[in-house]
């Protein structure tokens, strides 16, 4: 298991995830970020908010960014 951190890039600023989460692999971390982005985007869509350019920057325990997931990338439009 590895501890992954899900920082959020919002309006150019990085909001740090101070707790992180133990997950078995990078793929599992991306899956977790996608599931959370779906919840957050669904909230915005449901209440008529703008789905903007926020993104998860997934860090591993060494501080290296292993994946960037824009929230809007979870929208399936076709």
């Amino acid at each position: 298991m590895t501890r992954f951190y899900f920082d959020v890039r919002r309006n150019g600023r990085l909001e740090e995830d101070k707790e992180g989460e133990e997950l078995p692999s990078k793929e599992a971390a991306i899956e977790e970020a996608m599931a959370a982005a779906r919840e957050l985007v669904a909230d915005k869509v449901r209440t008529g908010d703008v789905v903007d350019g926020d993104a998860f920057e997934i860090r591993d325990e060494h501080g290296e960014v292993v994946h960037i997931l824009p929230f809007r990338s979870v929208l399936r439009l076709d």
């Binding site: 899900f6 919002r10 707790e19 989460e21 970020a33 959370a36 919840e39 957050l40």
Partner: peptide, 16 residues
């Protein structure tokens, strides 16, 4: 009943 990164994101909003 949400994913943990969603809580972290919501906490940032309230903290901001």
């Amino acid at each position: 009943a949400v994913r943990r990164p969603s809580v972290t994101t919501a906490l940032h909003v309230l903290e901001e």
